[in-house]
Simulated scan of single mutants.
Amino acid sequence: MKTWIEISKKNILHNIKALKSLLKSPPDPLSQRGRKPLFMAVLKSNAYGHGLREMNTICIQSKLVDWCGVDSFDEAMFLRKQKNRMPILVLGYVPFDRIGECIKNNVSIVAYNNELLKYLEKDSGKYNANFKNKKLKIHIKVETGTSRQGIANEELINFVKKANKNKNIFIEGIYTHYANIEDTTDPSYAMEQLKKFHKNIKSIESLGIHIPIKHSACSAAIINYPETHFDMVRAGISLYGHWSSHEAEAIAKQKNVNLTLKPALTWKTRIAQIKNLSAKTPVSYGLTERVKRNSRIGIIPIGYWDGYDRGLSSIGETLVSGKRAKVLGRVCMNMTIIDITDTPPKVKLFDEVILLGNEITAEELAKKIDTINYEVMTRINPLIKRVIV
């Protein structure tokens, strides 16, 4: 293989166990469970770049995961075809013409549009006949301050009333998402969102409607704010061994949270050619960089098509035989040039190069290209083979 990604099963299992150790019993007073919250592994966006197939295998075999969260119905069906029998929640948009398949395959979906209720009501006879009175399981999204998906207050109450009367619907869950719980050391906005979530739940329960699964906690909330745990938590980036931000990690240290996360992804390639260049020789497109000394360079067969960001041109670093090797010139579509002058003399053709992993962290790459670790990992081309190690 010219490039591949290794996923550490050991580190994923460590992260799951470490996160679950933070879940307390009993959870929030509004919880209906009376025991520790359920654990959702968020596998959306090709499992944050780690490989949906591979992460599904690890989660099933671990017997530590209660739910899986995905972005699309197609991702949910992929998991079902991979023999995943866990409850699955689609957190993103689901076209109405896939609703029947959701019911058939026991896939839960997020709900917030009255049009969904009208659609199901209009075709109620068809659904009852085709699915033997099986119901669509929904998790209602409460808007508390992210200005994204969701509804709240009177609109929410009316929606819940209608959904509760609809014979084709089972209100399985209700949840919200925090806008500013991970990028700040000030949790005040998130706590206001939590208050709004509590208020909306209490308004619903005052109608005599009890929703089994309430959830709000993302990775940062799982780690730092146990009051957000409710009946289920949704582990995203922390599942893969990364902190959602430096601020989230700082708060955990302030609170003496006993947690170590272990990154699970290592992205590798090989040296496809080795050359010797004289000082001042230009490298790659645009002549944007010239070597400052007589240099030994390696051409590696990956580029921005593979997800190695073009912003790393002339500033990225790789690992070759444990030594850092700088990116020279522009990252190309399918190739990148690295400086192997200072690597051990034994480095030879076809030796491995680490693009991401070990001391080359997603956080380091994100800082260099002015983005976040999430983007660095999720933008790795999904066609690249992932291997569980």
Rank of each mutant, 00 (worst) to 15 (best):
I5S: 00
E6S: 12
S8E: 08
K9C: 09
K9F: 04
I12P: 00
L13Q: 06
I16L: 02
A18G: 02
K24W: 04
F39S: 04
M40S: 13
G51M: 07
R53G: 08
V70E: 00
K81D: 11
N84R: 02
R85L: 11
M86P: 00
M86K: 15
L91T: 05
Y93W: 08
R98H: 13
I103S: 03
K104L: 11
V107S: 00
I109Q: 00
A111I: 10
N128F: 14
F131S: 02
L136P: 01
L136H: 01
I138R: 02
I140D: 00
G145V: 12
R148V: 06
E154N: 11
N158M: 08
F159I: 04
A163Y: 03
K167P: 09
E172A: 12
N180R: 11
T184M: 06
M191G: 03
K199F: 15
N200A: 05
I201W: 03
S203D: 15
E205K: 14
L207C: 06
H210M: 07
I211W: 02
D231K: 02
D231E: 14
A235V: 04
H242I: 05
H246Q: 14
A248E: 10
E249M: 13
A250W: 11
A250F: 15
K253D: 12
V257M: 05
L261M: 06
P263T: 06
P263L: 06
G286Q: 12
E289W: 10
R293S: 13
R293E: 15
G298L: 07
I299L: 14
I300D: 02
I302F: 15
G303Q: 07
R310H: 09
R310P: 02
G311Q: 07
S314M: 10
L319W: 05
V320A: 04
G322C: 09
R324Y: 15
K326T: 07
R330E: 13
N334F: 10
T341F: 04
D342W: 09
D342G: 07
L355M: 12
G357P: 02
N358Q: 12
E359F: 08
T361Y: 06
K367L: 13
K367D: 15
K368E: 03
I369N: 03
Y374W: 14
M377Q: 12
K385A: 10
